[in-house]
Write a protein that binds this DNA or RNA. Structure first.
Lengths: 211, 211, 211, 211
DNA sequence: TATGAATGAGCTTTCATTCAT
DNA sequence: TATGAATGAAAGCTCATTCAT
């Protein structure tokens, strides 16, 4: 009996509702920004009462974290897979950039929401998303896939890359990638894949040891 | 009477108060983030009542815009001056990056506040800061100085730069520069000038026509 | 069919569930106080869903009243029995106090819950528990056993007691007895029986005609 | 200038508003009980908006504490004065009871509210009023006046009182006194002073060493 | 019988804004 | 110029209750 029970203790309907709410949350964040994202607004997006959201998520904070986790998880999986398919450091860097922006192109809303949250969300204790990632939040295993430093260190050690400060380069690459989300929100016609190609070339030239 | 009236219709004291309020606003935004920046908090920062702020600025929005304008103006002046001192496109790009980050290093509070506003502030109509810049807001004349496109176009035309999409490169450069503010807010010991040097090299290699 | 139907129309299981819910309700009230006693919390105490409670009781108010009735009934039976075993007024008074506190000692949870309800519960119309007892609520027959006035009147008539106002004395005795519940909730080590002995002496001296 | 400034930094009007709010709070608590006492209800009692209350008091908890303090302070002053006018332990006990009930009679609303708060109020951390009094809350100096134990100890030491457990007797006396508030709320015609006379006799007989 | 899902009223609190002084 | 006072809208959240299954 109870054929509607999934292994993780959630019914099928429960999971569907949660997914619907997460989607609506991403939509509202992407459209209005995090500051104007209220539970009431999210509820209205689906056409239900506020209470529904608090029935499925303990509070606003855990809703937001669930969204973050959800997008991270899927993104990290895609990016990690693409990166590990490559064997040279420069190949991995190219794959990293491409896969990131491919994910952005394929999941515009999620990517946008995540970038918005990255700059505007704070935990009740005042921590930013990146400060969260470093410590308290249990993050998907594959999240290591989002870290550029190992790639840079490998290329520097092997001599494939010129000498540079990996932390600084990491910031430049990540911030450029994250900009795509903003561009997309401003201009729905923004060509993410063309942008990806430009970034690949740009950071290839910027990191490679000159011959 | 009113011998304390300046040409623009503001008394000296009036101007001093406004400056004090703008400074306090930047301080609070830099410390708490825009979301937690309330008029009450700004007033407390100076030790006056909330009313004072609304006496000098029509509403919260115009206070924020005044701050943006103020920082932009000073930043654009510094950057414009540095850029125009150079004559090659690559020289101008280097100067642009250096001057930007020099400004960030020299005016940490302002830079931090501006970056925070760049990601979190929205006009009552829902526009972001950069969407503002493009249209509605009357911006300081020198703001053109913040635009990278002329530099890229010049370098592309002259053959100094390799072929690339100026808009994409502009995004990469600006986002990398703006990241410095975030880094600074997370880690007060962040070495902005070292970061500047890395970026200069990075984007020099990324833009130059290979020999 | 329905061979499990009892004379009063309730199945055995039904009665067991009701008893379980009443017990859980008393536990929660005793632990958290009435203000923080929610149906959800009671349901959690048993490990069932909220709906179960509202299936067995029409609404929260009738659940609470059922608990009150239940405890009253058992308490009144015990006290009435003890009182009627005595034949002098002063003997009855001593028995009343002792039996009350004996019940408190033997059913700490119930007594605690009842005291808490006595001060915090109000009907939807705003009536307190004691205002209820006087009028609206159909109370167990034996409840008369809780009334001190007949005892005082008997002692006054027979000359066993000194002259005093029975209503005032009743208030003093009842409030002292009810305090035991509070003491118990604040200090689980509170010695109810020692307290009972003190009260017996106290009110014996306070009521007896001096010789 | 600023002739409306009082020594403690509150203007006359501010103090008047605070007093008005405290009074309204006591009224609502006395009428509806603490559980149904909301800021909205208090505001309506005065005919102002909810915000007014939160302008004058940081939050609901500090409003309630201010009320408690205020009533305590006045009550303790009156009781302490009456008690210290007596020199025998039994005289002090009589004065304690009389002064308490005299205060109740003279400030029905306050007394009622305080009794209600005594049983229903909990701090955000879950502490009851009496647990508060023992530790965290800075209470008026004269509060010691509310403690019966010194009186009992004195009478026991001097031999004026019979042997009894001071803690238990204290509970009996205090609970009897506090009952007056409840009686008053149920029956506005309740004769507090007659009740006081009964209690004085009752506890005189209960404590005195028999001759 | 029991559950999960949803609702709606009400709560405390924050905040930009207005206004009289 | 500046302040204190007040307002009202909106926020996150709790909870008894209803309903379909």
């Amino acid at each position: 009996m109870r054929s509607d029970t999934e292994p993780d203790g959630q019914t099928f309907l429960e999971a569907a509702r949660r997914a619907q709410i997460l989607r609506a949350t991403a939509e509202v964040i992407a459209e209005l920004g995090y500051a104007k994202t209220s539970l009431a607004r999210i509820a209205r997006q689906i056409g239900v009462s506020k209470g529904v959201i608090l029935y499925h998520f303990t509070d606003k904070d855990s809703l937001i974290r669930a969204l973050i986790w959800d997008v991270y998880e899927r993104g990290a999986a895609a990016i990690g897979a693409a990166v590990s398919r490559e064997h040279s450091a420069s190949g991995k860097l190219r794959a990293y950039i491409s896969a990131n922006l491919e994910f952005t192109a394929a999941h515009r809303l999620d990517a946008l929401a995540l970038v918005e949250l990255g700059s505007s969300y704070r935990t009740p204790e005042g921590l930013r998303l990146d400060q969260l990632a470093e410590q308290a939040m249990p993050l998907p295993h594959g999240l290591a896939a989002l870290d550029l430093l190992p790639i840079f260190q490998e290329g520097l050690r092997s001599g494939e890359f010129r000498e540079f400060e990996p932390a600084a380069m990491g910031i430049a690459v990540r911030s450029a990638i994250d900009s795509a989300g903003n561009c997309l929100s401003r201009d729905p016609g923004f060509d993410v894949r063309a942008f990806a190609a430009e970034l690949v070339t740009t950071f290839d030239l910027a990191t490679r040891r000159p011959t």
